[in-house]
């Protein structure tokens, strides 16, 4: 099976005069159609810039220095801007962390969703507005026919994130990039939004690139996980294997640093692992990488 998204040796840097500072150092991973792939890492590890590079939204001092990103057989990095624009939102869509800053405060949410259909599906505004109501209903916004006329500030954080998801999934993209979509939300709302993303994407066969710093969220959502550290993908494995048997030193440290629910009841309070205490030299962390080979495609991951 050919991967839907194939990131090969992606190198990304920050150019400042004659200096080039490398931010991503040869990141490679593949996402199969319908698969949910997680990128986990701490702030500054390069997970968000990876997603911006894929969707073609890198801003100035950041620059692609090398590598290829194949999506449905085409190299996104070599695509003319016009074609990239028609792809973006249509075949690849994105949900951002902070819906309040991602939505336009001066337009009703209905108009913003409708714009997707006008831009990419050639619908009239009247038709698109009707589709927007359906889209809101599909993300389980109560009374969607009233809510389409709301402005973003009239909605709660959870509802706004649902609007973002409705917008992203409006054109049935093949790939959804979700960059920390629930970090700003309360736990119970987070659980609802995660469930929504999981169910909608499974029903439509949308592949998801899920970015988060929260290992728990990654475990709930993803079939395969890549761990990023300092611009490198240091370990990649199927979710269960990664959590049960972390191979890379950094992954082990990360998992040990996490207070685990229920472990205090079983083993008493144990000191959390201080990552710096057992990794002697952080600069050597990126020397080793464990990329587990893909096993035979498991049932739900395949299409």
């Amino acid at each position: 099976m050919t991967p839907l998204l194939d990131v090969r040796n992606l190198e990304l840097g920050l150019r400042h005069g004659a200096h080039a500072h490398r931010i991503l150092k040869g990141v490679s991973f593949q996402i199969m159609p319908g698969e949910t792939y997680g990128l986990v890492g701490e702030s500054g590890s390069g997970k968000s810039v990876t997603s911006l590079a894929i969707i073609g939204l890198l801003k100035k001092p950041l620059q692609i220095l090398g590598g290829e990103i194949f999506f449905e057989g085409r190299n996104l990095l070599a695509l003319p801007r016009r074609e990239m624009r028609s792809l973006r939102g249509n075949r690849i869509a994105m949900v951002f962390q902070e819906p309040m800053s991602a939505l336009n405060p001066l337009q009703t949410v209905g108009r913003q969703i409708a714009e997707m259909y006008v831009q990419h599906r050639g619908k009239s505004w009247a038709q698109a507005q009707k589709k927007a109501v359906e889209a809101l209903a599909s993300v389980r916004v109560p009374t969607p026919e009233r809510r389409v006329h709301d402005y973003p500030h009239q909605m709660s954080g959870g509802l706004r994130q649902r609007v973002m998801i409705a917008m992203a999934l409006a054109c049935d993209p093949a790939l959804l990039i979700a960059d920390e979509p629930t970090t700003a939300l309360d736990v119970t709302v987070q659980a609802e939004v995660l469930k929504l993303i999981r169910e909608l994407c499974a029903a439509r066969g949308t592949a998801v690139l899920f970015i988060s710093h929260d290992l728990g969220v990654i475990a709930t959502m993803c079939q395969r996980v890549g761990v990023m550290y300092a611009g490198c993908l240091v370990e990649e494995n199927a979710t269960r294997e990664l959590f049960v048997d972390p191979r890379h030193e950094y992954t082990r440290g990360l998992l040990g640093a996490l207070p685990k629910l229920g472990s205090r009841g079983l083993h008493g309070r144990q000191r959390l692992v201080d990552i710096d205490s057992f990794i002697a030299d952080r600069s050597r962390l990126t020397d080793t990488r464990f990329i587990a080979p893909r096993g035979p495609v498991s049932g739900e991951a395949g299409s």
Partner: peptide, 20 residues
Amino acid sequence: RRLIATIPDPGAVLGLGREV
């Protein structure tokens, strides 16, 4: 109960730790 049940905890999700 709802708060505890909705925490995304790797152990609970993957069935590694004790049951929630």
